[in-house]
Design a protein around this nucleic acid. Structure first.
Lengths: 157, 157
DNA sequence: GTTCGGGTACTCGGATAGAAGGTGTCCGAGTGAATGAGG
DNA sequence: CCTCATTCACTCGGACACCTTCTATCCGAGTACCCGAAC
């Protein structure tokens, strides 16, 4: 069970975008320089956040990415699931219905207990991530962080 | 983020082994037939549970696998982590210290907040899985299940 | 001075190769039990 | 009938290919801005 490395990238990028002034954008190239990441691949992953409705993209000069909604309404879960998908890591393939020990369809009316327990754990994970919004992450940073982030993102010395 | 398919196999196999009479064993071939799984690969994964101390293996005729401890002391988490490893799915590579926006080592004295939140979610997942033991899984089955499982595992008609 | 048109440079977006880890398979080393002969 | 050495079949354990997914890269389509000329 491994999350893509790009998960970290996008969590940090979203945090950076949340520190911009409303209406401002940052391009994929700027974000890539800010964190020293492969620009093309980062752009590809940012598109996933656009498709998920977390970011909105503008083309052309002075274009780039910005948050599609207020930072207080974007949770860590939404970002992670935009990158990695929403499916559960445990996929029940109903092996209890196969082989010599196969259960009758009648005995499988209620779902597999093991699958239920795994789903509960996944739900606990999701709830934990959904409990934190980007706004709370920003609030935990020192007050000097946002201006500095803006400065360094735009490339100003 | 995807768990190996073999996770389901081993959760079910451990459940089956927990239904044996104390001291009895089941071979990898028997378990594979019971669930219609590739026997060689299942054996390879069962070894992982042996290395983790969840199962114990006996070679030679009438040998096989059995629980290394009482079912009440084996949690779902121990089985899952034996298969998939104990590392967190989110790996913080400290990209905040790289690139144009790199933070000074002094500002990185306390760990990255995002990494902390991701670790909290993983811990919630682990706690949820650790809360259920194999004994509780068995207790939820109908009383007729264990004898039937034993019969079908050994190949008796 | 204002307005309009074209050019340009910059942006995202999707289609295309390479690498890592899970999946599946194979064969060898070791062991405990069953067997047969001998006492 | 009991004992013991031998054989054997069965078990696990580790080493070797294949395939899906993540990683990385490239180039094309579209667009907002900037500049120049005309009014």
């Amino acid at each position: 069970m491994k999350l893509p490395v790009s998960t970290e990238w996008l969590l940090h990028c979203a945090t950076s975008l949340a520190q911009l002034k409303p209406g401002d954008t940052a391009s994929a190239a700027q974000l890539a320089q800010y964190y020293d990441l492969p620009a093309a691949y980062l752009a590809k992953q940012l598109q996933a956040l656009v498709r998920a409705g977390v970011l909105s993209a503008t083309t052309g000069p002075r274009g780039g990415f910005r948050l599609a909604r207020p930072a207080s309404e974007i949770t860590l879960l939404q970002i992670v699931e935009a990158v990695d998908g929403t499916s559960s890591p445990y996929e029940c393939r109903e092996i209890r219905q196969q082989g010599r020990g196969a259960l009758s369809p009648d005995e499988c009316r209620n779902p597999c207990i093991l699958a239920e327990k795994m789903a509960e754990a996944h739900e606990a994970w999701r709830l934990s991530l959904a409990a934190t919004s980007l706004a709370e992450i920003i609030a935990a940073l020192p007050p000097s962080a946002p201006p500095r982030t803006r400065r360094r993102l735009t490339g100003a010395p």
